[in-house]
Amino acid sequence: MADYIIAPNPNAQRLTRAIDGVDHTGAQVEIPVVEERPLTIFLNSQEIVTAMTIGDYPDYLALGFLRNQGMLRDDDIITAVDYDDDLETVVVRTERQTSYEEKLKKKTRTSGCAVGTVFGDMMEGLETLTLPAAELRLSWLYALSHTINRTPSLYLQAGAIHGTVLCRADQPLVYMEDVGRHNAVDKVAGWMLKHGESAEDKILYTTGRLTSEMVIKTAQMGIPVLVSRSGFTAWGVEIARQVGLTLIGRLRGQRYVCLSGADRLIRDVEPSSSREDTGKRHRE
């Protein structure tokens, strides 16, 4: 198993609940079902959004959401992140006085599961953004797919959930899950912000679709490579090409499609010489 900094804990309390039912044969069954609960995020004294989440890493989710919405600036000094489990709220406090009343009036409901929301101009800042031309070795791609798909996770235990993994070369580092893929990405962004992690040498792996929202968030985080086992949207591809993001989709074993950044792929292994995904307990 890879040496993750953070990995899913399928047995963590409160993330799933055992529920009785009947299977296709009529037999009584009890299966784990993913919990979802509201989390209200405040920036200083202003309520920003209520997100539906599985409830783990609320501090990272709040930090990442605010950072990806442009409400936390690079030069902001964060003085505290306070989570109240009883009230299901998290408050991010900064030295800078903040007010985003106008920004909050403009909401865009995204295509993400659990219905994501972004505020303000989604394309703000992308016009002048160019990501570093980071290389992507096929050996890294195949190794990441092999390892991540076999990592014990809530998905393998209960399904109905998305995963996002921050990686460096062929090493997965931080693996977050949530009911919405946007939440999982925000948790990764929050972890990077809190720990001052650089982005230019990273790869972001997601189980979700490569939509405009996913591409924009990855680009705003400064990560130059985005990989998914799912498919693309045309706008997502257009934005990836605009900002120089390497975009890999439909990754299954040794098969993939690259719709942006193919010139940055380094074919250091032939598909036939790398490991196939033949395990029984992994994502299909």
Rank of each mutant, 00 (worst) to 15 (best):
A114N: 14
D75A: 07
R73C: 10
E101M: 04
T98S: 08
T94L: 14
I77E: 14
D76I: 01
D84T: 06
K106G: 02
V115H: 15
K103T: 11
T117Y: 15
Q97E: 12
I77G: 01
I77P: 03
I77T: 13
E88R: 12
E101D: 12
D85K: 02
T117F: 15
T79M: 07
V91Q: 06
V92L: 09
E88F: 06
E101S: 10
A80H: 13
V90K: 03
R93M: 08
D86M: 02
D76H: 09
Q97A: 09
R93D: 02
G116R: 05
T79G: 01
V81P: 06
I77K: 11
R93W: 09
G112K: 04
D85L: 00
Y83I: 10
T89M: 03
D85Y: 00
D76Q: 07
V92W: 09
E101C: 04
Y83S: 02
S99I: 04
E102F: 03
V81G: 04
C113G: 13
D86C: 01
E101P: 02
L87H: 06
V118Q: 14
R73S: 12
D86W: 00
V81L: 08
T110P: 09
V90H: 02
T98A: 10
T98M: 14
D75Q: 15
E95W: 00
G116P: 13
Q97G: 02
Y83A: 02
V92K: 12
D82V: 08
K105D: 03
D82P: 05
V118T: 15
V92E: 05
E88V: 00
A114L: 15
T89D: 04
D82S: 02
K107T: 09
V118H: 11
D82T: 06
D74M: 09
V91H: 05
D86N: 05
S99L: 13
E95I: 05
R109V: 11
A114V: 15
K105F: 03
D74I: 02
D84Y: 03
D75T: 11
R96H: 08
R109G: 01
D74T: 07
G112V: 04
K105V: 01
R109H: 08
V90C: 01
K107Q: 13
K106M: 04
V81D: 10
D82E: 13
V115F: 14
T117E: 15
T117M: 15
D86V: 10
T110I: 10
V92G: 10
I78L: 08
T94A: 08
Q97V: 13
R93G: 00
Y100P: 04
T108F: 10
R93V: 01
V90R: 00
T89G: 03
D82R: 08
E95K: 09
S99E: 06
K103R: 11
A114Q: 14
K103W: 03
E102N: 12
K103Q: 12
K105T: 08
L104N: 05
E101A: 14
V118S: 07
D84P: 00
T117D: 13
L104F: 05
A80E: 13
D74R: 06
Y83L: 05
R109M: 11
E95V: 09
K107H: 07
T98P: 00
E88C: 00
Y100V: 06
C113I: 01
T89I: 07
D74A: 15
V118C: 13
L87E: 10
D85V: 01
D84Q: 12
K105Q: 11
T117L: 15
K107I: 11
K107N: 05
